[in-house]
């Protein structure tokens, strides 16, 4: 392979019309979508040989832990830094995530993701950061399970893939539910587990999930998102039951 063909969906500014622009980039072995976008930065010329503006996208760590470079690549939401060009069908189509307000080209505004975490009280209330001694004991097995759950990178792919994330409802999304499951499983987080479950039972929470299970398919970290949703639904049911008996 000598060259790689890209079709990139562009939009210079929120509110303006989008259009497709094509690029031909010299192939380098092991090249990723990020490599190509950086080539365009160095030489912003499109496939027709016309000068253009460099494509705007977001990236940071380039090793799939910061979650910044999510975009839709050949129809699928994923991280650009680990999208190897040699394994992609051409022309490679790049589009911005569609469930978030567009900023420019492939860059979107995902700030609402932090707000969603705030809605469910995604933290462990502590008396302070001063030293009051060690945290609770945990078994190796327990730690391993919790560790798996806490590897979310806030990339937004699960929101993009979810049919329930749409302008007609305010579903917080699978990553938030998974985050609650993680916190509630921690011995120090378990003390306030019910507050978080209550928050998930409010509008935009658990009841919005339609069990499409698309989230699991796209999660770059392979988090057990569907399982987390089921577990949190069980917690919610238990909570309802307890409430009906007046014991909480």
């Amino acid at each position: 392979m000598k060259e790689v063909y890209f079709k990139i969906k562009r939009c210079l500014q929120r509110g303006r019309d989008s259009y497709w622009e094509e690029f031909v980039i010299p192939y380098r072995s092991e090249m990723t979508v990020v490599t190509a976008l950086r080539e365009i930065q160095k030489n912003p010329v499109n496939a027709r040989g016309q000068k253009t503006t460099p494509v705007v996208w977001e990236c940071s760590c380039l090793e799939e832990v910061c979650g910044a470079c999510s975009m839709i690549i050949n129809g699928r939401a994923r991280q650009a830094c680990s999208a190897f060009v040699a394994r992609l069908e051409q022309p490679i189509l790049l589009e911005p995530l569609s469930k978030f307000p567009l900023v420019r080209d492939l860059k979107v505004d995902r700030l609402e993701m932090s707000q969603n975490l705030r809605r469910v009280k995604s933290w462990i209330p502590v008396d302070g950061t001063h030293d009051v001694g060690p945290g609770p004991h945990q078994s190796v097995r327990h730690q391993q399970r919790v560790y798996q759950l806490s590897r979310c990178t806030h990339c937004g792919c699960c929101l993009e893939a979810c049919p329930q994330v749409n302008p007609h409802n305010d579903f917080v999304g699978a990553y938030v539910i998974s985050q609650v499951r993680w916190l509630n499983r921690l011995p120090s987080g378990a003390l306030n587990a019910e507050d978080r479950v209550d928050a998930l039972m409010a509008s935009g929470g658990l009841s919005e999930c339609s069990q499409a299970q698309n989230c699991v398919k796209v999660c770059p970290k392979g988090l057990p998102l569907a399982e987390s949703i089921i577990e949190m639904q069980k917690s919610a049911t238990l909570r309802l039951f307890k409430r009906s008996l007046g014991i909480s």
Partner: peptide, 20 residues
């Protein structure tokens, strides 16, 4: 003291068999 703090706020540190 900083390790204790991180442990309390939810960093899933690896554990020994006894749970420390």
């Amino acid at each position: 003291g900083l390790i204790h703090m991180l442990d309390r706020i939810g960093v899933p540190f690896h554990r020994t068999e006894e749970g420390w």
